[in-house]
Design a protein around this nucleic acid. Structure first.
Lengths: 254, 254
DNA sequence: TGCCGCGATTAACATACGTTAACCGGCCCT
DNA sequence: AGGGCCGGTTAACGTATGTTAATCGCGGCA
């Protein structure tokens, strides 16, 4: 049902850094291994274990989380189609987070060895992957600000803005709507709130005609207003936009 | 007053990934530009601006923070000697966080261009820097868990464990003591608590004979107990320990 | 010597959010 | 068709932490 090349959404992401040459894109596509179909709520990577492959999410949703010994759980990122899972395994021996699917998901496997070789032969590709990792870090830091400084309403609004923007970047939105198959429990473990309060807050957002989320579908009614209550600036999601040379010139050492 | 090579503490860090060859270390040392002495509470990098240099903190302390339009502030990381500031500028056009000194600080400048060239000629060095960035991401994610899931007491205990462990790694501890020049306001903006509550919590930690922090000095009285209340596992700070080959072997695709 | 200002401390009071628990509705399975 | 389960919803009540504001102590400076 999907005739596009395996790496099309990933290329869409990487192009934000630097469009890849046809040859590089080809090489990347060629490095793709078998595609696996995973079921909902399946665990792909366990915190503390290693892996010989990194996955590329082709369809479906997943998340990464850390658990405390007493059962508390913090979701630290969401994976949407086009995201790698978990590129850190290229350089780190063991995974820092447990990665699980939210929905059924198609995942293409890339062997770490193949990928490391590839990167050696195509340094620009290596830099692009590194850039992708940095972007993930920016998102993590933004979540830190979100949980640390924003109220429940702002937090939720911000998360929804972010996911929607990321979905747009990989062409998975339809007007103001996109899929978002999260339960209120998952939202709670993401935003460090209780499910009850997530429920209250979700209703408040709907009451203000900003967004609604139900049946796994996110529907944005007033994006500018939503961004405004969230104090959302998508900058951290588009770290490259203007010409790098222009931006770089400032702040030379006196 | 400091006769060591500029990069000695950085090399200490990078060795955690893969000890560098004498030649690589030499090349890195050689790439170092001028050293600047900064005063306390000076801003080095402004959120949203670019820079042509990355700094290496030789002595002193600094922090990175994001501010919300209404003035709320979240500190997202601390920089201690041996840390780079801000390596992301090698690949991103603008800084995502404002970096400021906490104390007087010596900082060696590396030109981005020089560093990018260097990395091209020494791919292992590039990988080491990338590893360093990944480690920072792990720390950020741990902070997310910290703020999201832990109570005030656990949070503070965890932060102190982390900083102490990092200080150990660059040989800046003396038994159970190390410098830590943070005000309670800064701690509050780090842990997403009020200064009043930081004060209460700090006293509780002291009352339990776990740690004390005053006059810019951190004194750990019972590290095992402190780690235990913090649920601290230093794993995320030492992503490489066992042989990578061993760890990698698990989880091959069936 | 005394003033000033910052950071720490304390107390009284306020609140955003958590907890518990009951109920509801849809979906799956038999 | 019935039961059970999961996710969502609601209400009553509890609490960890925030807010405000006053006080204190100390180092710097005139």
């Amino acid at each position: 049902m999907n005739l596009e090349p395996t790496t099309s959404r990933l290329l869409l992401r990487l192009a934000g850094f630097q469009p890849l040459s046809a040859e590089e894109a080809e090489a990347l596509e060629h490095a793709a291994g078998p595609v696996r179909l995973h079921r909902p709520h399946e665990t792909l990577i366990v915190e503390g274990e290693g892996a010989a492959h990194v996955g590329l999410l082709l369809s479906g949703f997943a998340y990464a989380a850390r658990m405390l010994p007493d059962g508390r759980r913090q979701i630290v990122s969401y994976l949407i189609p086009g995201d790698l899972c978990d590129p850190r395994l290229l350089l780190l021996p063991t995974a820092a987070h447990t990665v699980s699917t939210l929905t059924a998901a198609n995942i293409a496997l890339f062997s770490c060895e193949t990928l490391l070789d590839l990167v050696e032969r195509h340094p620009r590709l290596g830099r692009a992957l590194c850039w992708l990792a940095l972007q993930e870090e920016l998102v993590a830091r933004e979540w830190l600000v979100n949980i640390g400084q924003r109220t429940a309403l702002e937090r939720l609004a911000h998360l929804l803005c972010e996911v929607f923007t990321r979905m747009q970047a990989v062409q998975l939105t339809d007007g103001g709507r996109c899929e978002l198959p999260l339960t209120q429990v998952e939202l709670a473990d993401t935003l460090a709130l209780s499910t009850v309060h997530i429920n209250r807050t979700l209703q408040e957002l709907r009451r203000q005609h900003l967004v609604s989320l139900s049946g796994g579908m996110l529907e944005i009614h007033d994006l500018p207003a939503l961004k405004s209550v969230a104090m959302f600036s998508g900058d951290y999601l588009h770290p490259v936009r203007e010409r790098p040379e222009r931006a770089r010139r400032r702040l030379a050492p006196s």
